[in-house]
Design a protein around this nucleic acid. Structure first.
Lengths: 331, 331
DNA sequence: TTGTAGGCGTTATCAA
DNA sequence: TTGATAACGCCTACAA
């Protein structure tokens, strides 16, 4: 900028004015400055720019588990798209359910003074009270898919209980009585909520929870393949499976592939190709794009007006019957 | 920092030393400073830090088409993971094949002084010569999945020609003679290369290209559904389809669903669940994770040692037979 | 319309 | 071992 000023024979401030298209610059001066900018290949430094107090970095931070999971990538896409509309950029970090990594990522983002943080908190420990200290009063945080614990903050959740209940009631409606739960460990918020919906539905039908039918596995496909195999090996195996998220659904389908037995499956989370599978899969759908968009909207409205009670947005779910959930038990 | 210094009764520089764990600080002083930091909730400002000349922003910029596409999300994940290993953060932007958006994104990233840029350039116009000016001598760029045009730069590509040829030769081996191409418009680099592999294979078998069997559609699922329907409606329809990427493969499968005719399909790009589909899908697999990792490695090695001839890394492909590609034509 | 001075939060240099 | 001072690149406030 210094060089530009000298080359154009003006002061720094004038260059600044030209860069930012401020009105009060003589056309001739502006032209000279532009020329110098072109020659010198000058480019404004937004880092220096954002250093001024009261100014923003125009950056959002998003911390998720893993971009590879289609649910999170849809969320990320929606957040990025909302960010772009406001001229913001998005820094994405994956923490892979590792609380320590999550913490480091968040601190790194805060050191960079992101204007707001969107977080899918690791499943455990379910306590983010430490964030209160770190965030300070000026950095809003929005919790995505899992609620805050030990800190007051906006969040966007899915109607986990309702969705799970609908899934299990659907299976009950087709005559199933032995319905398994395959999902994340229950200390995870979404798992707990979905399991609770599962229990609600069974209890509503006067069916006791059979703990042998409840399998939790870490959130990976391989784990639930094993779970489902174990379920099938029971002397009195389930006739239906409710799977707790898209990873577990894929695991279940993988375990069931090529099996003689037809076992009903309803999965939480929709996924591409669910309708083209050998067993077109009935799912509880919810709109990941809406989740991301809502989270971004909360972040921005918090930036626009800091003081308002924390908001909690709940995205509803919808059962999409495709075949796998409409199988009656063998009689 | 000022406040910390005052509260601890030391100078700014000493606080700086403590923050950065520089050796030459008396333990007692360091303790006082740490205490002040804790009380005041001070956090280093990495933005200000990176302002110093010669210092880095420890940030990589990645511009892709769309995080939602599993290919790109795998690339993004790999890049982020490599970045984290070096203490770098990753800013991701999607340009949705829009050259204007791409340009804006890149400029925004450069204004933020990302240390390096990883780019999947929009398909057209196939000319990135303008980047030479914008990048300056100090910002490396790595082209991912598509090569640079009009600018010298490192890049990571897939063996498109070889993969496509293998796909079509596979189909030829099962007796197919009328093999359709369904993919991106040929002005896109990957499409051109894959189409060229398709032609190679057919020519090698003494088969002329039938332009009625060549359908290009914009890179979305709906477009290729239409294409495939049109192909099926021909008086002399193809007995096999080679689809140019994962989006087109999904489109083809979607169009073929529920059809009586069994049409062979081999798709470029592997995708999750390909093996669980009603028509388990034969694909040309290549490792998106390796692509991302290689791109990040190129970027970092360029940061470490700027002057070396541009590198071109080619990731090989592998045909994974799953059923859809091993169907013989109806006789 | 243009320029000067000062500050944003940090670190390097050099002196104490 | 510590501190004063001057950058880094930009913008705001004020003055010319």
């Amino acid at each position: 900028m210094h060089d530009v000023a000298r080359s154009a024979g003006v002061s720094l401030k004038t260059v600044s004015r030209v860069i930012n298209a401020e009105p009060s610059v003589a056309d001739a001066t502006a032209a000279r400055v532009h020329e110098a900018i072109g020659e010198l290949g000058f480019r404004r430094n937004d880092i220096a720019r954002s250093l001024r107090q009261g100014s923003t970095s125009a950056t959002l931070g998003l911390v998720i588990e893993d971009v590879t999971n289609p649910f999170y990538s849809a969320v990320a896409q929606a957040v990025e798209s909302a960010a772009r509309e406001r001229g913001y950029l998005l820094i994405i970090g994956s923490c892979e359910e590792d609380a320590e990594r999550e913490r480091e990522l968040i601190l790194a983002l805060l050191r960079r003074r992101v204007d707001a943080l969107l977080l899918v908190p690791a499943g455990s420990p379910r306590d983010q009270s430490w964030l209160t200290r770190e965030l300070g009063p000026s950095t809003p945080i929005v919790f995505v898919d899992r609620p805050p614990h030990g800190i007051e903050a906006d969040c966007v959740l899915v109607d986990n209980v309702g969705g799970a209940r609908a899934a299990v009631e659907h299976l009950l409606g087709f005559g199933h009585r032995r319905i398994a739960y395959v999902g994340d460990p229950l200390e995870m918020f979404t798992a707990e909520a979905r399991f609770s919906g599962y229990c609600d539905a069974l209890n509503g039908a006067g069916i006791a929870i059979d703990s042998r039918l409840v399998h939790t596995a870490s959130n990976d496909v391989a784990g639930s393949v094993v779970s489902v195999r174990e379920l099938l090996a029971l002397t009195d195996p389930p006739t239906a499976i409710f799977s707790g998220n898209n990873r577990h659904t894929v695991g279940a389908l993988r375990a069931l592939r090529g099996r003689e037995e037809t076992i009903a499956v309803v999965g939480f989370d929709d996924f591409e190709l669910a309708d083209l599978l050998a067993m077109p899969t009935t799912v509880i759908r919810h709109d990941a794009t809406r989740i991301g968009a809502a989270a971004a909207a909360l972040a921005f409205s918090r930036l626009d007006a800091a003081d308002a009670p924390p908001q909690r947005v709940v995205i509803e779910t919808e059962l999409v019957p495709r075949g796998s959930g409409e199988v009656r038990p063998r009689t």
